[in-house]
Design a protein around this nucleic acid. Structure first.
Lengths: 329, 329
DNA sequence: GTCTGATCTGTAAACGATTACAAGAACGAT
DNA sequence: ATCGTTCTTGTAATCGTTTACAGATCAGAC
């Protein structure tokens, strides 16, 4: 015995398929009709087929979230926020990992044309013309969680890293640190570039010279450890700002190994304020770039655009704050 | 101008829709036919509609992964593994958060009947008769990543926590610790129960009495901190095994606050061997319960069952290992 | 009793693909 | 030249819904 269809329900209830459909979708019908249909549905254990429904109504009630790596805690935070908003609105969430290559991102955006989802939130590590073009031409609404040029004319929700950098530098300066170093991730990524520039500007604003700057191969713990020596050349800096929390924690491990104490000898500031910042030891002072809020806003923006595709592109900037913890004095 | 359909391509190429479909699906056709169709596809920028295809072929090429909380690092590891296997096989991954309630899990499994995905990997925190019943009756294949009774007759991939506990206890005993305590998560969950029993058995095997046992309200960092005092009653134990890494890290923070040194005064062992174990300070000795492998195997099992729904249910047990790090002497 | 309008229900046409079936073409063997 | 095979292509049915349209029913007003 195979799955009952709407036709089976109609037969069992002695009514037409149209009536069944109407009852199921809450359209007006007599009490008796509702009663009969519901009984038949109950009896047969009928469940409407999402595939058929999607084809007919042209919507799948699915949204896609594309991130570079599901393992990065900042994406996890974002994903959780997106999932919450999206499922509250009755959508399912499809999660896709694009990897670090922009061509894969482009392929993904193009593939949205197949219509397996009603919209896309993408958080690209690297952005080029092709990607922007594919987003603009995409068949379904796309929201970028990250920084793309305003002229691209796409919905975006982004962090304000320069402002975040400023908060970090101000805090360190106020605590008396002057020899401030910067441990970045790959500088050819959107966040890497923004943070490098933000760091330089923030130091300039305080009339300081960078004590050192280094570039880790990746935004990961391991890469942070590996790149730590580059930032610790003698005389060692008295503070290091890291482009994300994973790098900061990696650095702190190397500091401990080198016999340097945090925060006495070297203060450390991370970025993202992920759960890891709270959990690390000492707890990590970190710039909160609002990843949860960015996820939430991005999802809301996407839902809004699905409702009304004519609204003009919106660019939301989420303001940072500083979570001060034990890794700074 | 709206999206081209297969009919549009057929018209543009001057052939029938059947021929277009055949060319697109790689069925035999003359060179000229292939050529014409491909040119038309190119010109129109045709992309087949996943919704229509799903309806006709009865498959969506999507699989669902359901976990209690996307934020837990152990689920992240699992998710990454599942994503890898699944996308290599040409499927997309739908991620759903069920929350801690078993009724939501049941609703989810029942909802699979709508056919929006071709299979489900579910990692339930709590299991009851209803859930098992719904899994057995589910329209699509389901693999449980976790422990359900063998008589349930469903595909499962689970960890061997008792064995993992034994590894942890053996290690501690060998290092000379005798006053071993246990910090569990909620005992009314499947992993909580298994680990409690495993701990008791492992201690008995070594003729030891538990120094203390406590139950955190949740498998989280915050809950670990909150429950730490319960496990540290005087005289404090010389070792604590925690039901997962988050609890262990929470405990370590409280140990530091209480002026106890890890591992000198108290050794700490976590479970899951998540990335957090490596990143914490001191690095956490942790029982590797194979979450990545469990994810991988579960995904493979699901794919296999989709291919052949008649195979008898398989129960895979992934063996644990111990990752020794600085939190034990 | 008839007519108007409102309300409910049923018939049938979509949605956009895949695929069973049949018809036509091409070719070699007789 | 005829027949049978094989290979290619086209026609049309189908998947399970939703929904436009038309037909049926009914109440109320004259």
């Amino acid at each position: 015995m195979s799955r009952p269809t709407i036709a089976g329900v109609a037969r069992a209830a002695g009514v037409s398929v149209a009536s069944v459909s109407r009852v199921l979708n809450g359209l007006p019908a007599t009490e008796e009709m509702v009663e009969r249909v519901q009984r038949a549905v109950q009896e047969l254990g009928y469940v409407p087929d999402a595939r058929a429904r999607s084809l007919k109504v042209g919507r799948t009630f699915q949204l896609t979230l594309a991130v570079a790596d599901v393992g990065n805690p900042v994406y996890v935070t974002m994903m959780r926020a997106v999932e919450e908003v999206v499922s509250a609105a009755g959508y399912r969430l499809v999660v896709t990992t694009t990897g670090p290559d922009v061509v894969d991102e482009v392929a993904l955006v193009r593939g949205m044309a197949r219509g397996y989802a009603d919209g896309l939130v993408i958080s690209p590590l690297r952005v080029d013309e092709d990607l922007i073009k594919s987003i603009r031409e995409c068949e379904v609404p796309v929201v970028v969680a990250g920084n793309v040029p305003a002229k691209a004319g796409v919905d975006t929700v982004r962090a304000n890293s320069p402002k975040g950098m400023l908060l970090a530098v101000e805090h360190l300066v106020q605590k008396g640190r002057r020899r401030i170093a910067f441990l970045n991730g790959p500088a050819d990524t959107v966040p890497g570039e923004a943070r490098a520039k933000g760091f330089a500007d923030a130091l300039r604003a305080h009339d300081l010279q960078p004590a050192a700057t280094a570039e880790a191969a990746d935004f990961t713990f391991a890469a942070g450890r590996a790149a730590a020596p580059d930032v610790l050349e003698k005389p060692h800096p008295d503070a290091v700002i890291c482009a994300n929390d994973l790098l900061a924690v990696g650095l702190m491990h190397e500091l401990a190994a080198a016999g340097l104490e945090v925060p006495k000898d070297v203060a450390v500031v991370g970025m993202d304020d992920s759960e890891l910042a709270e959990q690390s030891f000492p707890p990590l002072t970190s710039v909160n770039l609002g990843s949860a809020e960015r996820g939430r806003r991005a999802a809301e923006l996407l839902l809004a655009r699905i409702e009304d595709s004519t609204r003009s592109p919106k660019r939301i900037v989420v303001q940072p704050s500083l979570s001060v913890r034990g890794s700074t004095p």
